[in-house]
Nucleic acid binder design. Sequence first.
DNA 1: TCTTAAACGAGACGGTACGTCTAGTCTTCTA
DNA 2: TAGAAGACTAGACGTACCGTCTCGTTTAAGA
Lengths: 223, 223, 223, 223
Amino acid sequence: MGETAASTTTGATRGRPRSERVRLAILAAAADLLIEGGMAAATMEGIAARAGVSKATIYKWWPSRGQLALDSFFNRTKDSIAVDRSLPLAAALITQLDALCTLFRDTPSGALMRELAAAAQADPDVREALEERWLRPRRAVGRRLLADAVARGELPVRLDLEVTLDQLYAPIYHRLLFGHQPLGRDLPARLVAQALPGLAAPEPGPTTPGSSPESSIAATERG
Amino acid sequence: MGETAASTTTGATRGRPRSERVRLAILAAAADLLIEGGMAAATMEGIAARAGVSKATIYKWWPSRGQLALDSFFNRTKDSIAVDRSLPLAAALITQLDALCTLFRDTPSGALMRELAAAAQADPDVREALEERWLRPRRAVGRRLLADAVARGELPVRLDLEVTLDQLYAPIYHRLLFGHQPLGRDLPARLVAQALPGLAAPEPGPTTPGSSPESSIAATERG
Amino acid sequence: MGETAASTTTGATRGRPRSERVRLAILAAAADLLIEGGMAAATMEGIAARAGVSKATIYKWWPSRGQLALDSFFNRTKDSIAVDRSLPLAAALITQLDALCTLFRDTPSGALMRELAAAAQADPDVREALEERWLRPRRAVGRRLLADAVARGELPVRLDLEVTLDQLYAPIYHRLLFGHQPLGRDLPARLVAQALPGLAAPEPGPTTPGSSPESSIAATERG
Amino acid sequence: MGETAASTTTGATRGRPRSERVRLAILAAAADLLIEGGMAAATMEGIAARAGVSKATIYKWWPSRGQLALDSFFNRTKDSIAVDRSLPLAAALITQLDALCTLFRDTPSGALMRELAAAAQADPDVREALEERWLRPRRAVGRRLLADAVARGELPVRLDLEVTLDQLYAPIYHRLLFGHQPLGRDLPARLVAQALPGLAAPEPGPTTPGSSPESSIAATERG
DNA sequence: TCTTAAACGAGACGGTACGTCTAGTCTTCTA
DNA sequence: TAGAAGACTAGACGTACCGTCTCGTTTAAGA
């Protein structure tokens, strides 16, 4: 990956140094094309043309289209995963889940993530990078919040941590990828309420409560 | 889609009738290649060659590779979604989830589903067909089980149905697609136990209990 | 080679037949580009574009650029090598040599032959085809004329046939390729007169005598 | 051209002087690659790599690959063109022609000359340099020998000098380039005997007489 | 000794063309 | 009419060189 390779080149730069301008142009062009037309539109030739760059330069720094897509996604998505640990557990969780939902719903990152998830099915390197650089850090935040709450006695000791994390995050990706249900604004709060019923359902953080309350048993199948 | 197209050809077939042998050969070849090497290996030319069939014949009956992959998946996967409604709720749910997990873990259908999910991100028709013909029927079964339980008073009236369904099914797809956690044999039981804590955690149905109990709070990050 | 391949396909043509229109368009485009800018300009991509044809189609029928150049040369150059055997020997020889000189001097075939000779140095198949399909038939005509004359007693029995043939033909190619001397109109007559001095130097056939008489001992180094 | 450029740099050499080691390494690498695989193998990058030299250094001193090939040819080929003018005419001519034949037949210079001749068709500078630095000096020697003989009355006054020179030299290049006949050891003597029949055919100089006498009318087409 | 300017190695870069591959379409013959 | 065979267009693939460029380093003449 470009960034990794660049960082490993410690000192002793022999030859013409790598152009940062070029690197950014490639990442930007890739992201643009991915958003506009998905993987099908983001051909290496198209990216090279749009970035005003030679194809060979791209291949020199990225081994595959998937890896490039990955890098362009991370370059675009400045999504902070830091969480205010002074917040009550429910609010902290909802805040993080809402950031994810909003990112996927209201920015091009949703489309990018869909393409990346698709690319990950064909390219093990992409899958691994996606897990390590995207999924794992976010799960780590959630895991820490839950573990702290268990330690404080707010959650039962027998809590199934990994499964709970899946039940909080997976529905968001599931809806993004399959579209069987919308990524509604109230989804984060409902996910937390359903997964951790012992907690009082508090202020839903940044969500606008009451908007499109698809909730409760009345909700039926879409379509 | 092949099956649909065939069924609409009601009567009065003039000319040479469509060869069922050819249709099955195409579906089989597509499924084989998909399993062996994923979408990348399942080229139209490869499928035609393996099936001993002309490319034009394939294009005549299937509009795209994704659609063909979809058909070949359904042709392969004889996955009953019927559920014994006399079973206790938890057992019924676990049985269904376990069938899904086992299908993805122990048969080529897991690989096929990964490819289909990827294809769905690029082709709206595939996404829609996947939702309608695969996801929706399975969710309908689960929804019916939950609604019955609510009606019987086993579950609270305020149960968030759609979110609960996501929390039962989504983790399975999430783990299949991103591989951050294994599709363990105890996963269905844990999903149900965590999502519906009010229920007694009963015999886990067909799962072998106690095998690799990654469960409870002790479980930490993989890798 | 295209023509060869086409002719071997005797009967039983299954599938779509090869398009003659396409074949000719490719040969014409190749010849045009070769004449305009030589081998450097006659790229496969350029030929395909100019012919309105896909690159794959070209590669299907011609194994290399050299082979294609060769075919396009033969397609362009309808140069009859038949000779009127009732003519006196000197006239017959001069007629043939003059046809070659004129072809190289006054038509694009001269430029084409230069490119082909160059290509032959890199591609043994081109060299062989050039020898068999171009050089050999022409030498065969000259050899027959000389052998007949020997049989009639017009030429000495000890005549060194192959060397004489080289001395008649080689200077023309030498001047074409290296340009150290022009391909003058009187060159054929002078070649014959010098190589076969026993013959009376008769009417020089189609040449215009007296034009640019670079001849005799007075001629000195060019430039 | 390298040597020319170096010699024109008269005095006042400020800065680091040009490295002779580098110049020779480049010429050697170019010649090696040309001999091994022709122009196709002698890429600028390959030459630079083999010579342990930067591409920019090559481009600094040679304008094109053809020019470099030319220089490397002259650097390799230490072919004396001096002739013992005390020898009889036929012997002197044969000696010179035999040197050329032997050079082309028994040393890598034959392969180099083929590549150069090919390069000359595409690059006018190469063609001109080849003519001036290689062909012209050799023809000048032959011309001087013939002119002397005419002055001494050994050859007729009406001798067509330029055509005779072509008939002596051209067949050698013709056979080298097109391979329709071998560059036999007896070729020089036969060329002289056929082109200048008035002379007594003397000792063939350095040739081994009697070896493979492909000569006289019995010789027929090869292959 | 120090300065200075060119030579040089390394290698990034925009290009162009390569030869291959697959997607789809079209054309002809056969069953 | 279905289907096989296969010619064809379109265009992306990943590679190889091209010739140019920007660096940092080296080398010897001149100050």
